[in-house]
Amino acid sequence: MTDALAIKIQHARLAYGHTSEPVLQDLSLTFRANQWTCLLGRSGCGKTSVLRKLAGLLEDAYWHGDILTCDGQPLAGRIAYMAQQDLLLPWLSVLDNVCVGYRLKGQPVTEAIRQQGLRLLEQVDMADKAQALPQTLSGGMRQRAALARTLMQDQPVVLMDEPFSALDAVTRHKLQTLSFELLKHKTVVLVTHDPQEAVRLGHQLYVFEGDPASARPLPALSSQPPRRLDSDTAQLQEQILERLEVDHA
């Protein structure tokens, strides 16, 4: 098990050109260890850019600001990333996709590693599809396989960019619960457009507002996620929607 890791972003600014207007300004965020933090906001406000910056994928942008970790060590190499698309490689079986990280690091995929991959596939209820090719699976199954691949990386921080958005309501609900259960000992940052998803899963919530955008925290609910949908969660959803509507106006 990897050690828990908290991350702090302080007074960050992001622009896509040297002289262009910033997309994000005075951005401060805290991602607590072993908790789910959900980022909400209108399209194009820079949520995904924050995620890509944390993952080391933001190359052609101007970022100013500190990214601090609780242990003072760099974040690189301690991140797992789950995108909206499952990104399963179509030429590999589901099990080989789960173990692909070892190949990409140049390490041999031993029998012990394959057994570990199979155990993770069992956890996501996909053991019977271990030898199947990804294109023969449904959207929900593919995302479960992607979840197993993320778990296989065993990194302390998991970045999720709308991983459930392309799924139907029931599959999404099941996969949210499963992901929460399996990633409860990780520091998870979830970008989502769905207030219900954020309210259900988030220990803490941030809404990106304004132009240039900055992050405003929302009061968290006292109950523990994954939450049942009740009057409290409905009220918080309403509050989120109101704030998002103001930003859309």
Binding site: R52, G56, Y81, L87, L89, L104, K105
Partner: peptide, 23 residues
């Protein structure tokens, strides 16, 4: 997306070419 995945999984240029770009 595949290139991003390779980056977050720690692939170097040659392994990315062999395992991702060529297939």
């Amino acid at each position: 997306g595949y290139l991003d995945l390779a980056h977050t999984l720690g692939a170097n240029r040659w392994r990315r070419l062999w395992h991702i770009q060529l297939p």
